[in-house]
């Protein structure tokens, strides 16, 4: 299992996102409603970065064509995305935030 440091606790504003590389794959880390979530950053529809999307009501909206993804499960809630995005685990250790692959 590999992990990467994202940022310090409190560094991400509410409804903010960061983008890190984990095992060569871009991962988006979100802070929403007091919780951290991590999803594969590349939208399952077309080349686009979810870390640049709007966050609301537990969902992130892809900036390219508006597909909504569930922050917790990565499920695609609207078209044009037809497939989910992978989820990652976020670990808070002391004052540091890490993201890990779940396998």
């Amino acid at each position: 299992m590999s992990r990467v440091r994202v940022c310090a606790k409190g560094e991400l504003p509410d409804d903010g996102a960061a983008r890190v590389m984990l095992d060569g794959i871009p991962v988006a880390v979100f802070f929403h409603g007091g919780e951290y979530y991590a999803l594969a950053d590349t939208c399952s529809h077309e080349e686009s970065s979810l870390s640049e999307g709007l966050i609301e009501d537990g969902e992130v909206e892809c900036p390219k064509h508006g597909s909504l993804f569930d922050l917790k499960t990565g499920r695609a809630l609207t078209l044009p995305a037809t497939r989910p995005v992978a989820t990652y685990a976020v670990r808070v250790e002391g004052d540091e935030i890490y993201v890990e692959s779940t396998s």
Binding site: E61, C62, P63, H65, G66, S67, L77, T78, L79, P80
Partner: peptide, 13 residues
């Protein structure tokens, strides 16, 4: 509503 064509799908949507 909006699950098939989300608001940000294109400018006219």
């Amino acid at each position: 509503f909006g699950t098939i064509i989300p608001a940000n799908d294109n400018k006219f949507a």
